[in-house]
Write a protein that binds this DNA or RNA. Structure first.
Lengths: 258, 258
DNA sequence: CTTTATTGTGTAAAATTTACCAAATAGAAA
DNA sequence: TTTCTATTTGGTAAATTTTACACAATAAAG
């Protein structure tokens, strides 16, 4: 965590640089070993986890702010980012359940109840996709930890962030056919079995192991490389990479990959 | 327009009841005679048109606020409403190009530059769908007119509302396969030719006049009624209505209507 | 050089989509 | 009354896509 004086200034004077009443929260997804993962920030003072988030500078576009916020917990810029929904229920934050006295004590501040932060806030939800292996999760200015969680093993989250994750996942699944989602979750080189597993995991259903990659290759969306991966005592599979030009074009013209 | 004192109070004290920095703008679509229509509000003082919009009460959810705002220009409640994107570019409103002196004079107020309204605002975009024939457009508190425009004949709009319309249309077109959009645009009873035309208009491409409705009937999404419509010197077509239960269920399980 | 587990090719059957012919029919015109 | 015109529909065959599944290929361990 950063210096106390810096934090104090943010709490007292932040509204001069950031817009009050509006925040951004990001569902950052990765994929590893047949599991969809999500990045969660832990807050000791609040006793729970939530999605990495932050406020919007008065000079920033929403996309730029989201990029900055995502970079804080992943150390990566220019991740694939997509705004999916804005959350604005006045009861989305249960103020009565938050213990400001404890929180103030915890971070070493005398009193924060008059801060611009303690007021009704709507939040713009973004989801981000990244190659799991490139990320080293990093705690933010206010959070104490940041870690990957399997999507089906996340603890109950603070505020309305359970709903945010649910909606982000739903968007991810429906947009799988229209945006280069699998491409963002996989490393640059992958085997047919790996991309097949990504689709099965995201869709939550079985896809014929032979027909599925056959279609991808037939459409020219992925290209076979002249390299193999060593997987121990079995036939070595070829590596493939996306033909991004054809892939995005196919997605634009409405090709579906069932 | 409402009384001057009421308006003055909104401009000076509105931030006590409404959240500053956040607004909602609605793209309200209707369909008539092979044309997709959109509702636009005219502002004499600003010299142009824009989407009907408004602010969010501190006690409202976003959806409820959108409902209220849409009702102001259509007189209809419970329209089909869907949030599609939030717009937050700090340059989305060109303050320097807006003539407040003229505007203040026009509405009979001495000075509004210090109002909570004159500050950076992000806007949550909603689109609404309605049976064209049920709406009588109505000017709002601040606007001077409200009328239907053919989607391909709208004038350049104020602020970033051209972009809003573009994005709303794009969302509408992609969601055509996943939400009961045609159902909301048509009257309760319609002919096969009419629903065929709605899809052709929205998709902007030809669909086989024979195969398209046949599929709808085969899937049981629409039901033939025991009524015909008189269309002059031609064979009278049967009227149909949606089987909403089957229709929404089919959409959920991913049936596409190409 | 046999065994084991996984990758990857080929092909036939099933299902769906596409193209389009021709009959039905309502009112207007002859 | 009969003919004509424009439109709605029923049907069906061809083309295409999807699905199912048999089996050959292959890497390395024993």
């Amino acid at each position: 965590m950063n210096s106390i004086s810096e934090l104090q200034d943010f709490i007292i004077n932040g509204h001069k640089h950031y817009m009050p009443h509006i925040s951004i929260d990001a569902a950052i997804f990765g994929y590893h070993d047949h599991q969809l993962k999500i990045l969660l920030s832990g807050y000791k003072a609040l006793g729970g986890y939530c999605l990495p988030g932050g406020y919007i500078k008065r000079t920033e576009t929403l996309d730029k702010a989201a990029n900055r916020i995502v970079a804080e917990s992943t150390s990566l810029t220019d991740l694939y980012l997509k705004q999916y929904k804005t959350f604005g229920d006045p009861d989305r934050i249960k103020w009565s359940e938050l213990d400001f006295e404890k929180f103030s004590k915890e971070i070493g501040l005398p009193y924060i109840k008059d801060s611009w932060l303690i007021d009704q806030t709507i939040s713009v939800g973004y989801y981000a996709l990244t190659d799991f292996s490139l990320v080293t999760p990093k705690a933010g200015l206010l959070s104490d930890s940041c870690d990957w969680f399997n999507i089906d093993e996340i603890p109950p989250l603070l505020y309305d962030h359970d709903q945010m994750v649910k909606d982000a996942l739903h968007t991810l699944r429906t947009q799988l056919y229209y945006y280069p989602i699998a491409e963002k979750l996989l490393p640059a080189k992958f085997t047919l079995t790996e991309i097949h597993a990504v689709y099965e995991t995201l869709l939550g259903k079985k896809l014929d192991i032979r027909n599925f990659p056959k279609k991808l290759v037939f459409l020219g969306l992925i290209k076979k490389l002249n390299e193999k991966r060593n997987i121990g005592p079995h036939r070595a599979p070829f590596l493939y990479k996306f033909d991004l030009k054809k892939y995005t074009k196919a997605l634009e013209t409405g090709t579906t990959l069932t």
